[in-house]
Design a protein around this nucleic acid. Structure first.
Lengths: 118, 118
DNA sequence: GCGACATATGCCTATATGGGCATATGATGA
DNA sequence: TCATCATATGCCCATATAGGCATATGTCGC
């Protein structure tokens, strides 16, 4: 099997830095494709392709306005990422580093006992 | 160009669900490769390969203990993900939905004025 | 109707992935 | 020394990606 499609997940869609840039640009409000092309400094077809991926995972919505398409952010699909990564927050929070060290040492001892006991 | 390597980023490394499972398993404390194989129910070579990726982006550290390798979680590389996705939290927080709607409408009006004014 | 504008799609290439399988490497205990 | 266990690597394949470029589609003003 190859890598999972970029349109599988928010996780996969957002692994691309340009796509994150697009979303970042949309935080400020709705943007036209041309707006985004200018902000990102990328060729228009490439931006359209990235937008397609974002659309397919539901991270953006489109609205037609004359000959332009206005893109709007929809962050909901990012919630799973937030929820997942939140569980690791204490790993880099200075305040918990000592506590973590102690807890992990305790767990190691338990595991070592379990292994030896079997 | 192809997609960025999985070892480029925590973003890319973590796009793989099995790799997230491995990290999740390591939250409970250090684990042996065999432990992980049992927990994930995957063939050992595959687990070793995923571990390699996680090692290369610094998400896990290894320690040799006899003929086993004991893997330990290192969440620090996840911080950029957390920091990035945090900016989108209000998108799915019910409490802010109304406010966001109003703000976005205001911004739309401004943009429309800007566009028409040019 | 027509030419300019805005956007999406198609086709092409290089790349490296996830997984399957066999095997190399290394440590252990008898 | 040798068989066994624990782990990592190598080779194979199918897949689809990001980007480049040309072009299709659709809309506007005139």
């Amino acid at each position: 099997m190859a890598r999972a499609a970029t349109t599988t997940d928010a996780f996969n869609a957002v692994a691309e830095p340009r796509r994150r840039e697009i979303l970042d640009a949309l935080i400020g409000g709705e943007r036209t494709v041309t707006d985004l092309v200018e902000v990102l400094g990328l060729p228009q077809p490439l931006v359209s392709k990235h937008l397609r991926v974002l659309r397919e995972v539901g991270l953006v919505d489109v609205r037609e306005e004359g000959r332009q398409r206005v893109y709007r952010l929809n962050g909901h699909p990012l919630k799973p990422i937030h929820d997942w990564v939140k569980n690791y927050e204490r790993t880099w929070t200075q305040r918990f580093d000592r506590l973590d060290a102690v807890l992990e040492e305790l767990k190691e001892m338990e595991q070592r006992n379990d292994r030896d006991g079997e």
